[in-house]
């Protein structure tokens, strides 16, 4: 029989009310409170209940997560449930925090339930499955039923349907899907076109997501005091590609010392080349400065327009790289730049 772990807050874990909301995490090898309902409805046994006060999780998130992950490292389980959190904001955030951490650490399916008004939905719907739930505990049975039904589908290896059919909040994860009625694209296109012409409602198969912008960093006041780094997604590397960066769908990046170099010397002289598979490499191999302009930066450095060109440039390959990998590499590179006291970045892409 498969095994499940359930996460509850102090109230549903039967510790007490608001007065014990700073209750530290504990794990019990039994079914506590709502965990019993899960056990009844699941095609799995609930072996452990994790209980944590909402305030403890809210104000000591890192510590709480660490303690709970430590509890779980010797527990054998196939699926993890958190909540339902209804409209309780702190509980929702707690279910999201721990759910996300468990998913990342143990790679098991994690399912929760929250009311649409719960702030945990917006923050964590991309990380774990969250089903729409009721406002309050009056909906406990309905909400647990919904998420255990879905959990059972996963446990039994059944085919999972799209988010709108299964019912969980959309996560921004898009996969191809064979339509049951096999309506070909040409029919869908003509139908959509006629509706659009006639001013009728239609549904785009690719709703354009809102641009996810980051806060604009302030302008540099005095460049002549600034260290600037060059970063590229154009795949410029030393000819032997020491970090074995992939030519496409890259998961690796490298940093290469350019201190003392006036320019990047080329492939023929056994120095730098591109390994990017997404464009014709001839020009970049002949003169890597067309992608990573070390020569121009040195000139500005010599003229005193910039304080310093950072001693390393950073490189990876942009083509076919998933957003997740690109974001991770971006974070890692940003960390390096921080450690090296760089203040500004020129990123060149191909």
């Amino acid at each position: 029989m498969k095994k499940a772990v359930v996460y509850l807050n102090q109230f549903f874990g039967q510790i007490g009310g608001e007065d014990v909301a700073d209750h530290a995490p504990e794990i019990r090898e039994e079914k506590v409170g709502a965990a019993m309902l899960y056990d009844q409805l699941l095609d799995a046994e609930v072996t452990h209940t994790v209980i944590c006060g909402d305030n403890f999780m809210g104000s000591n998130t890192e510590e709480a997560v660490e303690i709970i992950l430590d509890f779980l490292k010797d527990v054998d389980f196939d699926i993890f449930f958190a909540g339902p959190a209804f409209q309780a904001g702190r509980y929702g955030m707690a279910c999201g925090e721990i759910g996300k951490a468990v998913k990342e650490e143990f790679d098991v399916p994690v399912i929760s339930s929250m009311n649409i008004e719960n702030p945990g939905v917006e923050v964590f719907k991309k990380d774990i499955y969250i089903f729409p739930g009721g406002h309050s505990a009056a909906k406990m049975r309905d909400d647990v039923k919904k998420i255990t039904d879905f959990g059972n589908k996963i446990l039994n290896g059944e085919k999972l349907l799209p988010a709108e059919e299964e019912g969980y909040y959309k996560r921004g994860i898009r996969h191809q899907y064979f339509l049951e009625d096999e309506t070909p694209a040409y029919e869908r296109a003509i139908d959509m076109l006629l509706k659009k012409i006639n001013g009728e409602e239609f549904e785009s198969e690719l709703p354009i997501p809102e641009l996810d912008l980051v806060e604009i960093a302030p302008a540099i006041e005095d460049l002549s005091e600034t260290t600037i780094a060059l970063v590229t997604s154009g795949g410029i590397v030393p000819v032997d590609n020491p970090d074995k960066i992939q030519s496409a769908s890259a998961t690796r990046w490298g940093k290469y010392d350019i201190s003392g170099m006036d320019r990047l010397e080329n492939r023929d002289s056994n120095n730098f080349k591109t390994i990017h598979a997404g464009y014709d490499p001839a020009a970049a191999d002949a003169d890597p400065n067309v992608v990573v302009p070390v020569d121009a930066m040195r000139k500005y450095e010599e003229e005193g327009r910039i304080g310093k060109l950072h001693d390393y440039f950073y490189s990876t390959v942009g083509t076919g790289t998933t957003q997740k990998e690109a974001a991770r590499m971006g974070k890692e590179i940003a960390q390096e730049l921080q450690d090296a006291n760089v203040q500004a970045v020129i990123l060149t892409s191909t």
């Binding site: 709108e164 996560r171 898009r174 996969h175 070909p184 690719l206």
Partner: peptide
Amino acid sequence: ENNAMFCGDRIAGWSPKTMKEF
């Protein structure tokens, strides 16, 4: 990857596939 399916996305119009949120 689907990338290597011969004309697999049938963009000329035959495709019985769409994209869905999961």
